[in-house]
Simulated assay, not measured.
Amino acid sequence: MSPVTIKDIARALNLSTSTVSRALRDSSEMNPETKKMVLDYAQKVNYSPNPMAVSLRASKSKAIGLILPEIANAFFSQLINGIEDVAYAHGYHVVISQSHETYEREVNNLNYLSSRRVDGILVSLSSLTTDLHPFHALMDQGMPFVFVDRVPQQGQVHKITSDNFEASYNATKHLIELGKKRIAHLTSPRYLSITTERLAGYKKALLDYDLTFKEELVKYFHYGGAVAQENEKTIHGLLDQVQPPDALLAASERLTMASLEILHKRNMRIPEEMALVGFTNNAVAGLLNPPLTAVVQPAYQMGEQAAKLLIELIESPQKVNEFQNLILPSLLDIRSSTIGSKPFIS
């Protein structure tokens, strides 16, 4: 059975198509009785507007773009779920692209999405992104943007993040209160927002507990843990120091898993010889050997909030009078990789 069209409704009610169209748009410039007659009949015959026609009339694609470092990551997959649930509820489709931690692919994805006339774009920056001019150029042309998790540290933009400072502070504090003195911090490139914030939380915890910050215990990974050779060389070098660390705080999922793998290769007992805390949303963290103490970010909720804000910017830009910077709390899930088999009492 063919879908009911505006012409069908007009023919059945003996009205012009323009009158029916105005009624379906809820126009205030027409007879209320006629409008009610049209709307009642449209409901009766299950009329549904053609999404392509609606898009063309409103100059909207009803699609939003999403640029992420990768999909094969528990945090980003949960972020996508939150974004898609909100987008779907508002009648939008999500066009997803991956930068794979390269600036060139990120810019190519950005250009592709803008050429496809998406209505707005969500972005989590790659670990190699330092030049934000391509983003600002599109913003200057009126393209709505919301940055999520990895966000620009300079300039005014809309941001949705987790509380990286607090999460790192609490993870470091937990290790210190277990008696750890030489806590290593494994992190992404210096210029990423998450690196700056998580390093600051780590430093503050050391300061609050009168432990000296040691630069040799901080390791920056240029590719954010995406290159196995860099991971192995850097982590083995850290563990081979004359005074090695007694705990590792890995500030990303890739670095967390790389650290666990290398500790197992070296037959190190966790946590007796080396305690480990990692930032990860991986659902199997509690099933690892040993179960992993993890910083769990509110990825799904971040995705929800990012999509809600972007859709508001698209549909009601006049309602957003200032740049939004929403920060959501993370959770420290304490398991055996720091406390061993003993029950933890907070």
Score class of each variant (00 low, 15 high):
Pro3Ala: 04
Arg198Glu: 07
Pro271Phe: 02
Glu84Asn: 09
Ala10Arg: 01
Leu288Met: 14
Val54Gly: 01
Leu56Asp: 07
Gln229Asn: 15
Ile80Trp: 09
Asn170Lys: 15
Ala167Asn: 03
Gly278Glu: 05
Ile262Ala: 04
Leu276Thr: 00
Asn31Pro: 02
Ala87Arg: 06
Glu106Ser: 06
Pro3Asn: 11
Asp163Lys: 06
Pro291Trp: 03
Ile262Pro: 00
Val218Leu: 13
Ile83Val: 15
Phe135Trp: 02
Lys308Arg: 14
Gly225Val: 09
Gln141Ile: 10
Ala228Asp: 15
Leu178Asp: 01
Asn109His: 11
Ile9His: 00
Asn31Trp: 05
Ala89Tyr: 05
Ile71Arg: 08
Ala74Gly: 04
Ile160Glu: 06
His100Asp: 11
Tyr169Met: 12
Val95Leu: 15
Leu138Gln: 14
Asp8Pro: 02
Thr5Gln: 04
Ser127Arg: 05
Ile262Asn: 01
Ala63Lys: 12
Glu104Phe: 03
Gln297Arg: 13
Ser168Thr: 04
Phe344Cys: 03
Ile270Trp: 01
Arg105Met: 07
Met257Gln: 12
Gln297Gly: 05
Val218Arg: 11
Pro343Cys: 07
Gln78Ile: 01
Glu70Trp: 00
Asp140Pro: 06
Met52Gln: 12
Ser124Leu: 11
Leu15Pro: 03
Met143Pro: 05
Asp149Thr: 01
Phe135Leu: 10
Gly237Met: 10
Ile334Asp: 00
Asn73Gln: 07
Val4Glu: 01
Asp131His: 06
Thr5Gly: 03
Val295Cys: 10
Lys181Leu: 14
Ala247Leu: 06
Ala294Cys: 14
Glu312Cys: 14
Leu206Ala: 04
Arg25Asp: 04
Leu113Gly: 09
Gln156Met: 02
Arg117Asn: 13
Ile96Ala: 08
Ser336Asp: 12
Lys204Trp: 11
Ala294His: 03
His174Asn: 08
Gln229Lys: 15
Gly91Val: 05
Phe75Pro: 01
Asp131Asn: 14
Asp26Ile: 05
Met52Pro: 00
Leu132His: 05
Ile6Ala: 00
Tyr112Trp: 12
His236Gly: 08
Leu24Gln: 04
Asn46Glu: 09
Asp26Thr: 08
Leu310Lys: 08
Pro144Ala: 10
Leu128Lys: 13
Ser99Lys: 01
Arg105Ile: 00
Val320Asp: 14
Ser126Lys: 01
Glu33Val: 04
Lys342Tyr: 03
Leu39Cys: 06
Pro317Ser: 06
Lys44Phe: 02
Arg117Ala: 15
Ile160Leu: 08
Leu199Asp: 08
Phe75Thr: 03
Lys233Ala: 15
Ala307Val: 10
Tyr112Ala: 14
Val295Gln: 02
Thr102Asp: 03
Leu332Cys: 07
Val320Trp: 14
Arg266Gly: 08
Thr256Lys: 11
Thr196Val: 15
Ser16His: 12
Leu79Glu: 00
Asn14His: 08
Val118Phe: 13
Gln141Tyr: 02
Met52Lys: 04
Pro317Tyr: 09
Phe76Ser: 00
Pro32Tyr: 04
Ile96Asn: 11
Thr212Ser: 13
Thr172Leu: 03
Ser114Met: 09
Ser59Cys: 08
Gly120Tyr: 02
Thr234Trp: 14
Phe213Gln: 08
Asp208Ala: 09
Met268Trp: 00
Ile67Trp: 09
Gln43Asp: 09
Gln154Pro: 00
